[in-house]
Design a protein around this nucleic acid. Sequence first.
DNA 1: GTTTAGCAATTGAACGTTCATTCGGTTGCA
DNA 2: TGCAACCGAATGAACGTTCAATTGCTAAAC
Lengths: 192, 192
Amino acid sequence: MNVQLLNKKEAIFESTLTLINENGFHGTPMSQIASHANVATGTIYHYFSSKDELITELFAHCRVKTNEHIFNVEASLSYKEKFFYIWNRLVDYYLANKKVFWFIEQFYSSPYYELIQQTKNPSYYGADRMRMFFEEGIQAGIIRDVSFPTLISLYIGAATSHVKMVTYGFCKAQKQGREDLIEIIWNGVKNQ
Amino acid sequence: MNVQLLNKKEAIFESTLTLINENGFHGTPMSQIASHANVATGTIYHYFSSKDELITELFAHCRVKTNEHIFNVEASLSYKEKFFYIWNRLVDYYLANKKVFWFIEQFYSSPYYELIQQTKNPSYYGADRMRMFFEEGIQAGIIRDVSFPTLISLYIGAATSHVKMVTYGFCKAQKQGREDLIEIIWNGVKNQ
DNA sequence: GTTTAGCAATTGAACGTTCATTCGGTTGCA
DNA sequence: TGCAACCGAATGAACGTTCAATTGCTAAAC
């Protein structure tokens, strides 16, 4: 697969992301994706066997990209620093890539997600590194032994809620709110 | 509008909720909603002018029902007790009405939400009572003076994330996790 | 160095289906 | 008598997908 082909697939991904953000899964015909990406309708079916596969693969693609970005962290940092750093990287990434954020949100809360949960494709699971990171902190006695879903609910839940607030325009003093949030979570989960 | 009519409208709402949960906004034809609700297709158009209006009104309906439920709280409780009580009511309500929860989630992350944000219909705003409740705590000096979006991100964000975890089947020890969550949030926002 | 075969990439019109919406007619209540 | 509620077949537009035809590239054959 040469560069040109990669570009076409990327263009299809990018157009799908943009149009689904504007019009939703329905309301985004393949023909529209095609013309937005400057390819013919049939070309999409050269890369993806169906609209469902296109959307499902785009989801996996977004997850991989997001994970690559947020876990790109200096090993020399202290655990606490990493705890803050990764969270801020996540919020930054979503704010800078709102289309990715909303596509993932839309996908999670749609029946699509149940479909891919049944498959075993590891690309769909993004939580492994997060789990490892939390376990590292628990085993070192730095954070409390709280269950993984609880930690995720706090850490990821607060990050996504914050991004939603900013996107909806409910959040004026963004910087202060962000710092408060992650500090409250840290204080809640750290030992002592 | 007599009782029979209310029942029909309720039946249409209920069927829409069920089918959209299973198949999404797309994948749920009006004809299917009609037969599931035991009415003719045309009847839906007697109550709603379009599919979009049906979905938008269903959203407002769900929000009102949810708010009615969670803010039904004993005035005699202390602020801290109310803080815990309302949060648990919210989680309970969503867990007992998963279809409502997922419909709201799907709606929020879809382009529908942007549409209704432009309207001035107060039914669509569910945050007012939550804001009042937080302001009450801040003014009484019981909770820290943290911005409203920050409080919402923690309080609602953690609740919805928890419900998602349970629904996805990631959350085994549900009871402990719930208690940990709201306690961590309380400790993070209370004064002293 | 040119030819040629073959396959991947690409096209967009055409197909068949599905779906939101309409509408002319019926029922039932006031 | 009139009007609201209700019906469901009919309509027409939109959409996912297919496919026969074309282009462009690569590499083997000469």
